[in-house]
Nucleic acid binder design. Structure first.
Lengths: 190, 190
DNA sequence: TGACAGCCGGAACACGTGTTCCGTATCGTC
DNA sequence: GACGATACGGAACACGTGTTCCGGCTGTCA
């Protein structure tokens, strides 16, 4: 074990942060198809500088996505007196996040976790958090008991994809989620 | 006006059809990001042959998409005694089509019709057909009256995007659409 | 069967991408 | 202030893409 890691030079540390901020902005604007050159331009930095800090484009984007997703996940773990509201509120936050950051849908995709992706951990955490909130909401009687995680994640993934793509307005999101959430509630006994 | 269009040579006509079939197969497999070379390989044809028949990759793909969408739309216009079932059945057919052909979601996207796309016509027709079925289903009391076309199209677009991406199984589609369709129905008076 | 318009294949070109490399500039230390 | 390690910028490379071009082949028709 080598130990003793010399601290980064001050300008390097500054550049690293500028690159992360730039990547976040560019991802929000263009989604994960954004080019490394776009990030370099936004950061006011050369291409080589980016590759000095991140081995790969994928590594850079994952760094941004993982960081922001962890912040989002932190909100899911606050215990709430109203599991139904907590569940639906968190779903809506995910959709808002998707629309603003263009980067949420991938984390919800099919349960077959892509082993080569560095986002596998945070993706698993996300699905588990949703699963926990779902179970709690069902036990509280706020969500239909026959709803299972796969179809919930599939629908949520679809909503995120559409919201990322077409930049839903606040009102459209409100109306669409009202419809979807109605479908999640228990059917009143006819 | 020139008139007098000489008929295509027989081999050229044959190749044109092979290209269209190949394009359909490749689109179903890889979506609209498929390369022209992939279509050429599937058709067993040179690149030049494709460009002899279609001025552009976009033109080729649009030809496939427009043709298939027209066939799908033909089903929407059969008058039905049960507008509610007709509405939901057509929505499901669209989702199945999306999952199999990887090509439906674009037609449902934001109402701002892209003027440069040759699919604008068929996209408008699709939205209008859905709108008609929606209105009929609402008048029959089978769908909640406060549902409007924008959020319906947005949700449907999301479902198609997710189904195209992750190749939903029949069962997953069934479960997801059951939930979504429940949200479309009228809320029973408390 | 001969001649030619039409057609074909695929090499070649233009462009955008991710990534590497190296001469130069800068930071931290003495 | 000088010096070495570190970091920077951006040209250059490898690759995949859409598209064009042209020499040669082939269906068609007299």
């Amino acid at each position: 074990m080598s130990g003793e890691v010399r601290p980064r030079r001050a300008d390097a540390q500054r550049n690293r942060e500028r690159i992360l901020e730039a990547a976040e902005a560019v991802l929000a604007r263009e989604g994960t198809s954004a080019s490394v050159r776009a990030v370099a331009g936004e950061a006011g930095v050369g291409l080589g500088t980016i590759y000095r800090h991140f081995p790969t484009q994928e590594a850079l984007y994952q760094a941004v996505i993982v960081d922001r997703t962890r912040r989002l996940l932190a909100e899911a773990d606050r215990p709430s007196p109203d599991p139904g509201t907590a569940f639906l509120t968190f779903l809506e936050r995910i959709v808002v996040h998707a629309a603003q950051k263009k980067t949420a849908a991938d984390l919800l995709a099919g349960s077959g976790v892509d082993p080569k992706a560095g986002t596998a951990d945070v993706s698993r955490d996300m699905r588990q958090a949703i699963g926990r909130l779902l179970t709690a909401a069902q036990e509280a009687g706020a969500v239909r008991p026959d709803l299972r995680a796969p179809e919930l994640l599939a629908l949520l993934c679809g909503v995120c994809l559409a919201a990322e793509r077409d930049e839903w307005s606040d009102e459209l999101r409100r109306r669409a989620l009202d419809v979807l959430f109605d479908g999640l509630r228990p059917r009143p006994l006819s």
